[in-house]
Design a protein around this nucleic acid. Structure first.
Length: 455
DNA sequence: ACCGTCACGGTTGAT
DNA sequence: GAATCAACCGTGACG
C-alpha cells in the first residue's frame, strides 16, 4: 500500500489511495495505521470532510489519524480505552507514548485538559484581539475548546480546568445536622428554608455547601424526626471536620509541580471564592479583559507581595492563586520567575524539555513526544503545538516562548498578527486592540514580558 | 467563515 | 482492589 499525504494548498490534503484495501484494519471503518512521525501534522479525516477535488474516494469512514491506535506498534492495545484499572506504571508509560491528534494537527489527550500553557496562550491571544478561529488554528486546538476556555475565562476569570473526578462531598455533615437539630429544637416550627438561611447566617455553611431546602427537609424527617434520639454521629464520634474545601476546587494536575508540590488538588474552582491564604482577587478587577489587565500581573504580584517573597514563599504554591491571577493578568515572566516559566509550564503533566523548549510553535506528532510525563503526550515540547511544518503562516511562532524572563518580542507579535491577518485579511477588525501597537509599546507599557506558556 | 452548543468517548477520583 | 458514579475533559459536528 502506498499512501501519499501532503498539503494541497494550506488546509487541504491530497491523498493518493493506490491500494485502498490494504492497510485497512478490520471492521467497517477503514482505518489507516500510520507511523506517528509524520513530516506533517496528521489529522483525523472523515470522508465527509473531503472536498470534491479530493482524490480520496471511500465508502467507509476513513480515519487517518495519529490516534493512539495508530502507533507504529499496532499490536499494542489502544490506550485510549478506559485505563483506570491499568497498572499506573503501565498506564503512565503508555500515556507517555500515545496521544491523539486532532484535525488541526494538534495533540491532545482525550479526557484530559489541555496544558495550562496552552490554555494560557489561548486567553493571551484572545486578549490580543486574535479571533477564536485564528487561535484555534494557530494553537491547533479545536474551536469548540477555544470557545469553551474563553467562555470559562470570561465567566470565572480562570483558565484552569475544572475539578475532574471525585465525588461530591456530602453537605449534610454531622456538624450541619447538629446545627439543624439545634435550630429545630430551638424553634420546632422553623421552616427548612429558614434553617437554610440560618446555616448561612451563622456561618455553618456557605452558599456553596449549604444543603438544599429539600435536603434539610429530609434531614428533619429522617434524622431529626425524633429529637429524642441521639445523633448517631455524636453518639459514636466527634463530628468530622467540615471539608476544608468546597467541592469545586480547582482541578490540579497531580504531577510534580513547584506550584503544587504535593501534587494534590488544590484551590477552588474558578469562580468559587477562595479562602484565606489565597491571593484573592475581586472579580471586578480592573478591566478584566484588557491586555493590560492580563499583563498587569506584575503590579498585582508586587501588591500582593508575591514577588517579594515576603509571604514566606515567593509564590503561593496554591493553584488557586494561579487561578486568581488569571483574571488579573498573567504573571510576567519576572513575576513568575519564582516559579518561573519552567514551572508554569512544567505546569502540569506536560513537562517540557528544557533546552530547546519548543514553543507553542513546535508541534510534534503524538508519538514524537517524549514521554516524560504521566499523562502523556503533551510531554514534550510543551508548548509545542505547531509543527515545524506548520501549514499556517505563523511559522514564526508568534507566541513562541523564549524562555524564562524573556519577553515576547515585537516580532513575535508581529508574527502573530501576520498570522491573524494572513488567515483572513481583515484589517483592523479590532482597531483598539493593543495588538496593533508596537511591541515595545506593549512591553514598555506594562513593563513586563508576556509570559509564555512554553519556551 | 465564524462561533456557540452539544453529543460523544474518554479520564479522574471519591465512594 | 474492583466497580460505580458523577464530575470533568477536548473533539468534532451541527446549525
Amino acid at each position: 500500500m502506498k499512501i501519499t499525504l501532503g498539503f494541497k494548498g494550506c488546509r487541504s490534503w491530497k491523498v493518493s489511495w493506490e491500494r485502498a484495501t490494504e492497510g485497512l484494519q478490520g471492521g467497517s471503518a477503514a482505518e489507516l495505521r500510520l507511523p506517528l512521525r509524520l513530516p506533517f501534522p496528521s489529522r483525523s479525516v472523515s470522508s465527509s470532510k473531503w472536498g470534491r477535488g479530493s482524490q480520496l474516494s471511500l465508502s467507509v469512514p476513513l480515519c487517518i489519524s495519529a490516534r493512539t491506535r495508530a502507533h507504529p506498534d499496532c499490536a499494542r492495545p489502544n490506550p485510549s480505552s478506559r485505563s483506570g484499572a491499568r497498572q499506573p506504571a503501565l498506564r503512565a508509560a503508555m500515556e507517555q507514548t500515545y496521544g491523539e491528534v486532532n484535525q488541526l494537527g494538534g495533540v491532545f489527550v482525550n479526557g484530559r485538559p489541555l496544558p495550562n500553557a496552552i490554555r494560557l496562550r489561548i486567553v493571551e491571544l484572545a486578549q490580543l484581539g486574535i479571533r477564536p478561529c485564528d487561535i484555534s488554528r494557530q494553537l491547533r486546538v479545536s474551536h469548540g475548546c477555544v470557545s469553551k476556555i474563553l467562555a470559562r475565562y470570561n465567566e470565572t476569570g480562570s483558565i484552569l480546568p475544572g475539578a475532574i473526578g471525585g465525588s461530591k462531598p456530602r453537605v449534610t455533615t454531622p456538624n450541619v445536622v447538629k446545627h439543624i437539630r439545634d435550630y429545630k429544637q430551638g424553634d420546632p416550627g422553623i421552616f427548612a428554608w429558614e434553617i437554610r438561611d440560618r446555616l448561612l447566617a451563622d456561618g455553618v455553611c456557605d452558599k456553596y455547601n449549604v444543603p438544599s431546602v429539600s435536603s434539610i427537609s429530609r434531614i428533619l424527617r429522617n434524622k431529626i424526626g425524633n429529637l429524642s434520639q441521639p445523633n448517631p454521629y455524636e453518639a459514636t464520634k466527634q463530628p468530622p471536620p467540615q471539608p476544608a474545601l468546597p467541592y469545586n476546587h480547582i482541578y490540579q494536575y497531580p504531577y510534580p509541580n513547584p506550584m503544587s508540590p504535593t501534587g494534590t488538588k488544590m484551590g477552588n474552582h474558578p469562580g468559587v471564592p477562595v479562602s484565606a491564604g489565597h491571593v484573592s482577587i475581586p472579580r471586578s478587577w480592573p478591566s478584566a479583559h484588557s491586555v493590560s489587565n492580563i499583563l498587569g500581573i506584575r503590579t498585582f504580584m508586587e501588591q500582593t507581595g508575591a514577588l517579594s517573597g515576603t509571604e514566606g514563599s515567593a509564590y503561593s504554591p496554591k493553584m488557586e492563586d494561579w487561578a486568581g491571577v488569571n483574571r488579573t493578568g498573567f504573571p510576567a515572566t519576572q513575576a513568575v520567575n519564582g516559579i518561573d516559566k519552567a514551572v508554569m509550564e512544567a505546569d502540569i503533566k506536560y513537562p517540557q524539555p528544557t533546552p530547546s523548549l519548543s514553543t507553542v510553535g513546535s508541534f510534534l506528532p503524538a508519538c514524537a513526544y517524549p514521554s516524560s510525563n504521566q499523562h502523556g503526550v503533551y510531554g514534550g515540547p510543551g508548548g509545542g503545538y505547531l509543527t515545524p511544518g506548520h501549514p499556517w503562516p505563523a511559522q514564526g511562532s508568534p507566541l513562541a516562548h523564549h524562555g524564562p524572563g524573556v519577553a515576547v518580542h515585537g516580532g513575535d507579535l508581529a508574527a502573530a498578527m501576520a498570522f491573524k491577518h494572513s488567515s483572513r485579511e481583515v484589517a483592523d477588525r479590532k482597531p483598539s486592540s493593543p495588538v496593533g501597537k508596537p511591541q515595545d509599546t506593549l512591553n514598555s507599557l506594562h513593563g513586563l514580558s508576556i509570559p509564555t506558556s512554553s519556551s
